[in-house]
Design a protein around this nucleic acid. Structure first.
Lengths: 163, 163
DNA sequence: TCAATTCCGACGAAACGTGTCAGAAATCCC
DNA sequence: GGGATTTCTGACACGTTTCGTCGGAATTGA
């Protein structure tokens, strides 16, 4: 049962930056699965992990952020589990990703809300990073959870028809 | 001489994903500095590292990718150094970043050019990642090296009202 | 020949990502 | 109350990646 995510996939060259971690992948798939399986009663973690073939214990740890961000409600004890805290159509994927990872920021010097890096002088470079940051966040926010949870493939269509 | 990039900057919270590495930061700053200092004769690595306060030996290693990608020309030996291989206005930052890191891909399952992940069935999620990928690449390509090398570019002025 | 410079591979320390595990706390049902 | 179920939490382990140093080889100009 240790065969999650073929590890050969990732060392395909130098392999790339700007990557989301497995944490994000798992977290998003959890949310999508929960959306699909949520029919009024709480869905247990085990059910979702089995359904999506995700490492349960790790997922357990990942979910904390989603709960803290108020995206899901949890109920402990027998017959407990998770529910969406809001309708899927009102949850932007940007919220989900920001709950899973920290703030989405492509370069450390943008993290401190105030001054863009200490090299303020000629640091025109920070413009590049902040445009990337904005683009990523816009792209994420252009999807809702409901978009991804729709079973049929035409998700691209629905989101392409957005404004 | 070991005071590059205050390490406290990065553990600011869980701190975030979708980050470019220092490699990218250094590489980009190298390119910008080279653009500014290139006046016909090759510019030595030491000069650039001093100017930008970057770890020279590390930079040396990073630059290999830029050379291999044909973005800079190098000349060995005394009075050697680096030159831009093309005019700065014709170099998109996307090229620079892709030369520094691998291909810009936000999730491993998009790396294999063909099929998006092996869970093809209901993996609507991959659409999210591919939109992010496209957004990032577009954002990067919307800048040229010349844009960043301009000393008094407008946005930089607004954020740097000092000196 | 000597000095300057790029080029290259190896090495090391530290951080991070990806999980696992054990146990505490809450809740439901009999 | 007691037992079963389930979330919650913190600690730990392991491999990989990042960041950077070092030493030396190759190339070139003076």
């Amino acid at each position: 049962m240790n065969d999650h995510q073929d590890p050969a996939q990732r060392d395909l060259h130098g392999s790339g930056a700007v990557t989301f971690s497995m944490r994000s992948e798992y977290g998003v798939r959890f949310m999508v699965a929960l959306t699909r399986m949520d029919h009024g009663e709480p869905v247990s973690l085990t059910d979702i992990a089995d359904q999506e073939d995700l490492p349960r214990a790790y997922l357990e740890q990942i979910i904390g952020g989603l709960r803290d961000a108020g995206l899901i409600d949890s109920q402990r004890g027998a017959h407990g589990g998770y529910r969406l805290a809001r309708p899927a159509s009102e949850v932007r994927m940007g919220e989900v990703l920001r709950a899973l990872e920290g703030p989405i920021v492509p370069m450390a010097c943008l993290a401190a809300a105030g001054s863009p890096c200490n090299r303020a002088d000629n640091c025109t470079v920070s413009q590049l990073w902040s445009r990337v940051r904005d683009s990523v966040n816009e792209a994420l926010d252009s999807f809702t959870l409901a978009d991804l949870a729709k079973p049929g493939s035409p998700v691209a269509l629905s989101s392409a028809a957005k404004h």
